[in-house]
């Protein structure tokens, strides 16, 4: 119903409005300068602007610096085990489809130990919003190379420099058949970060946002070339994607109009080398969500449950020898 009735208008007037600080729980223990702070600010802005009810919002995480996120949000949260942020989030969504479920995972948690869950979560396409906090290093465990670390990264486990080419999370997600929303953001352009987070929230399906994030402690100089030269950030814009404001457009002049429905162009952009693409790479609103297939209109009354149980038990019941008793009675 687009038009609101008088009662609905009055009810909306009575609703309490929460400020940004109302979503803040505790003081973040991330390093000063960590990109996670920017992501936290953007997500809290989203909660305030969309009026998300804290008791209807869940943040699910695995293990890593990124996964400290639920501790700092005054909503429901689940800090799970390593690599299993996505399965837990899918379980929450299936049993409570009415909740807004967000997933905070890192480059180790998602692309290394959690890689299997990652692929299948994309296929299920449940209505989740997934943030990949990609700082290209294992930060919490004090500097080991991750799958997205650039080749040659010197770390505790790769003292002579890592030997494998970095995994590209964008091309991997764009390669999964059922994908419905893929976007990339950088934590040092807060305006675009917020717009992408908002678009990801509004998309109905699995929204995968890779946030390229600075780690000032272990990889302080890694992103300097892109931080200091705005032209090495390519802003993707489109009527169906992001709109670039005038002020931002003056600083970030490297812009490309890219249609989010064009999968081949998205894959080309994702595979590109020099400039970091920022924006919505792919967005298909029509992909169905797994929880919709499983939803039933039947009301789970006690009678329904009882009849279902009885039907199952009847398959295994050993019937008393009613047949023999009957024939005996007939004979008599």
């Amino acid at each position: 119903m687009n038009r609101m009735t008088a009662t609905e208008c009055l009810l909306e007037m009575c609703e309490e409005h929460l400020e940004l600080e109302d979503y803040q729980s505790g003081v973040p223990r991330w390093c000063t300068g960590c990109g996670d702070n920017a992501i936290l600010a953007a997500v809290q802005r989203l909660c305030r602007d969309e009026g998300l009810r804290p008791e209807k919002t869940v943040f699910v995480s695995g293990i890593g610096c990124s996964s400290r996120f639920p501790h700092y949000m005054k909503t429901y949260g689940f800090h799970g085990i390593h690599g299993r942020a996505l399965p837990v989030a899918e379980g929450v969504k299936m049993s409570r489809p009415d909740l807004d479920v967000f997933v905070n995972t890192g480059d180790g948690d998602c692309c290394s130990i959690g890689a299997a869950h990652w692929i299948h979560a994309l296929r299920y396409n449940m209505n989740l919003t997934v943030f990949l906090h990609d700082n290209q290093i294992y930060g919490l465990t004090k500097m080991q190379a991750s799958p997205t670390s650039p080749i040659g990264t010197k770390s505790n486990t790769t003292p002579r420099g890592s030997m494998l080419e970095a995994l590209n999370p964008l091309t991997v997600t764009l390669g999964v058949q059922n994908v419905s929303f893929v976007a990339q953001a950088v934590d040092w352009v807060p305006e675009l970060l917020y717009d992408i987070v908002k678009a990801a929230y509004h998309h109905r399906g699995l929204s995968f946002v890779r946030i390229v994030q600075r780690c000032p402690e272990w990889m302080p100089k890694l992103h300097d070339p892109w931080l200091h030269d705005p032209n090495r950030v390519q802003v993707l814009h489109h009527a169906r994607g992001l709109q670039v404001s005038a002020a931002l457009g003056r600083v970030y002049r490297n812009q490309l109009e890219h249609d989010p429905l064009d999968l081949d162009a998205a894959r080309r952009i994702a595979s590109g080398n020099d400039a970091i693409p920022v924006g919505i790479l792919y967005h298909d609103p029509e992909v169905p969500c797994y929880e919709d297939f499983k939803r039933s209109t039947l009301l789970r009354t006690p009678a329904l449950i009882r009849s279902g149980l009885q039907a199952q038990f009847d398959k295994f019941t050993v019937w008393p020898k009613a047949a023999e008793v009957e024939t005996a009675q007939q004979a008599a």
Binding site: P28, C34, G35, N37, W188, V189, A247
Partner: peptide
């Protein structure tokens, strides 16, 4: 507008 909330 361009601040990234890094607490520095």
């Amino acid at each position: 507008v361009r601040c990234s909330t890094c607490n520095e």
